[in-house]
């Protein structure tokens, strides 16, 4: 059987009501893009206790990959990508509500620009301030950060733009690139494995864009226990990449 056009991977540790809203918005976006039938939506239950209810996940139009051990974000995504191979992978957080236009815009950009391997999405917080419109890199220990994060959304032009990296909160990746790079690096406990992946993609000659046409909603860092894993991830990232990326200023 030939791989589908798209596999959307959504790891989740509990958070069922949020996840159902996420799947509902995603379903509308896949419908609007006309790719619902060519897509697999994969929810990775990353050791929720009690487990996520299989019938409710199926009713939301998603496949369920249950993991009994709690795995890092990278491993959860890699396992799902291996289970449902596709021509494109969309990594999405369970606290992201995509707009109906979002998936179509992202697939459209990769379709128009064959040299682009990864496409991110513009996202806002519930108060309308920017959550993500591209990742830039600061000097010294500042490292990667979200451009204009928490600033009013109108400060960022609505023009698709190239970056060195975009967030994995909602990131579309060509399947060939995913295979070539071996998926996400599982050494990262939680966080910055997405930026690591982008930098590795650039090293293999791929360009990275962020779609600015629509504004999806991202509540950000809703998963319990995630904050304590940020520091070791950041330390690992900086030890590997500091001095190897370009300072954006």
């Amino acid at each position: 059987m030939s791989p589908k056009l798209l596999t959307v991977i959504i790891p989740s540790l509990g958070m069922l009501p949020m996840l159902e809203q996420c799947l509902d918005a995603l379903g509308r976006s896949l419908e609007a893009a006309g790719v619902r039938e060519q897509s697999t939506v994969a929810v990775v239950d990353n050791a929720s206790h009690p487990p996520l209810p299989p019938k409710r996940i199926a009713a939301a139009g998603a496949e369920l990959l249950r993991l009994d051990g709690h795995h890092c974000f990278a491993r959860a995504n890699n396992l799902a990508a291996r289970r449902w191979p596709a021509k494109h992978y969309l990594m999405q957080n369970n606290d992201v509500l995509v707009q109906p236009e979002t998936i179509g815009e992202m697939l459209g950009l990769l379709g128009r620009m064959p040299q682009v391997g990864i496409c991110g999405a513009r996202m806002v917080f519930p108060d309308g301030s920017l959550q993500h419109a591209g990742v830039v890199f600061g000097p010294g220990k500042k490292g990667p950060y979200h451009l204009l994060r928490t600033k009013p959304s109108h400060l960022m032009p609505r023009i698709d733009r190239e970056f060195q990296a975009v967030t994995g909160g909602c990131m579309l990746i060509r399947g060939e690139l995913w295979q070539e790079l071996g998926g996400l690096d599982e050494d990262y406990p939680f966080g910055l494995e997405d930026i690591d992946f982008c930098l590795r993609a650039r090293q293999s000659g791929q360009r990275i864009f962020c779609c600015q046409g629509s504004e999806s909603l991202h509540f950000e860092a809703m998963t319990p226990g995630r904050a304590k894993l940020d520091s070791p991830s950041r330390a690992l990232f900086m030890s590997r990449w500091q001095g190897r990326y370009t300072i954006d200023g």
């Binding site: 990959l65 249950r66 993991l67 009994d68 051990g69 795995h71 396992l79 289970r83």
Partner: peptide
């Protein structure tokens, strides 16, 4: 049945 990560575990 067993979970998807049962082989590793």
């Amino acid at each position: 049945y067993l979970s998807g990560d049962a082989p590793d575990l």
